[in-house]
């Protein structure tokens, strides 16, 4: 960013400096302050512009991250961290334990169980959401009566706070007096234990997350579709391409750059989609819908004493998984010639 706003005139200054530095041993006493001052005087504007961002990112992301990393290498829980009670300050007494927490977590079946379900949950949610979003976007990307109305209706889930929709869904799913089972009952079908059976609970949480995620996909894909020049379709039609051929040969390549981004974002969001799981099933029944973040939450906030170290360990592992995924994804894109 700093380079982007480098004023002209910087280059001569640097050029002038170079020969002097090359002429014998530099006098350390006065050279650095001079350089610093010169740098300040040329870049001060850039630094001033960047400073607030750096400060904010440092405070809200950098510090918690560093602290989380540190806690994951200790045996910190709520009984040994620093506390302030009135005028008394209780000093922290937790100790560095190296990678013990990581070894414990990785040796534990619970982690691998949760990871398996988290991956399945992410793939299912992103796959279904993307397919639905693209289908709906294609259907809406043409002129017909009431198009605005349809678009509004499909974007509606976005206008409702997620926790409100999740609670509404929970009432719909209620096994004994929910509307869904009421409708099924009228059709002569037995009540489905939507949230009480491990398999159905998984289906239910995925369904709700898809419902919540479609508007984002829809809008993003609609935008992508509208950026495809109409001439291409006209030319294809002239050549006698049918609808399916136009879709696979023009639409799909056309939306590709946008699709790649939204799939990546959606994957990261879904991987860490805490509210849907927690508010709908609390991870139950018997932990069958617990994803990695809800398990980390349980460690940090439900057990007593609250286990900050283990929770941080889970958090760091989640972060690592996502970073690895993003890097692999990027590499795959590069291979296919995407310039990103």
């Amino acid at each position: 960013m700093a380079d982007a706003v480098t004023p002209p005139g910087t280059v001569p200054a640097r050029a002038a400096e170079a020969p002097r530095g090359a002429r014998g041993p530099r006098r350390r006493a006065d050279a650095p302050p001079g350089r610093l001052r010169r740098r300040l005087s040329t870049y001060w504007y850039a630094w001033a512009m960047v400073a607030p961002v750096v400060a904010v990112i440092g405070v809200i992301i950098g510090w918690p991250l560093v602290r989380g990393l540190w806690l994951s290498l200790t045996d910190a829980d709520e009984a040994n961290v620093e506390r302030r009670i009135g005028v008394n300050r209780i000093e922290a007494t937790y100790e560095f334990v190296g990678l013990d927490n990581y070894l414990d977590v990785l040796r534990d079946d619970v982690f691998w169980d949760r990871l398996g379900w988290t991956v399945l949950w992410t793939v299912a949610c992103v796959g279904i959401t993307f397919t639905l979003g693209l289908t709906l976007a294609t259907m809406l990307n043409r002129a017909f009566r009431g198009r605005t109305l349809y678009r509004m209706a499909l974007i509606l889930p976005w206008a409702i706070p997620a926790f409100v929709s999740v609670f509404a869904w929970r009432m719909l799913f209620n096994e004994r007096n929910g509307i869904l089972n009421g409708v099924l009952g009228n059709g002569g079908i037995d009540a489905v234990p939507w949230l009480s059976d491990p398999t159905w609970a998984k289906v239910s949480v995925i369904a709700v997350n898809v419902w919540l995620g479609v508007p984002f996909m829809l809008i993003a894909m609609l935008g992508a579709l509208q950026s495809i020049p109409a001439e291409q379709y006209e030319a294809a039609e002239m050549d006698g391409a049918n609808a399916w051929q136009r879709f696979t040969n023009i639409t799909l390549p056309g939306v590709r750059p946008v699709a790649m981004t939204v799939v990546l974002l959606s994957t990261i969001w879904t991987f860490n989609m805490f509210p849907v799981i927690f508010l709908l099933t609390r991870g139950g029944p018997a932990g069958s819908t617990d994803i990695l973040v809800t398990e980390a939450f349980r460690l940090a906030f439900v057990s007593s004493p609250r286990d900050f170290a283990n929770s941080a360990t889970w958090g760091v592992l989640i972060l690592l998984l996502l970073v690895l995924f993003a890097l692999a994804y990027r590499k795959a894109l590069r291979k296919q010639g995407e310039v990103w």
Binding site: I60, I61, I268, W340
Partner: peptide
Amino acid sequence: IGTTAVAAALALAA
């Protein structure tokens, strides 16, 4: 994209 992903993941963690 790597940076974007890391930043997004960090924001979520935070």
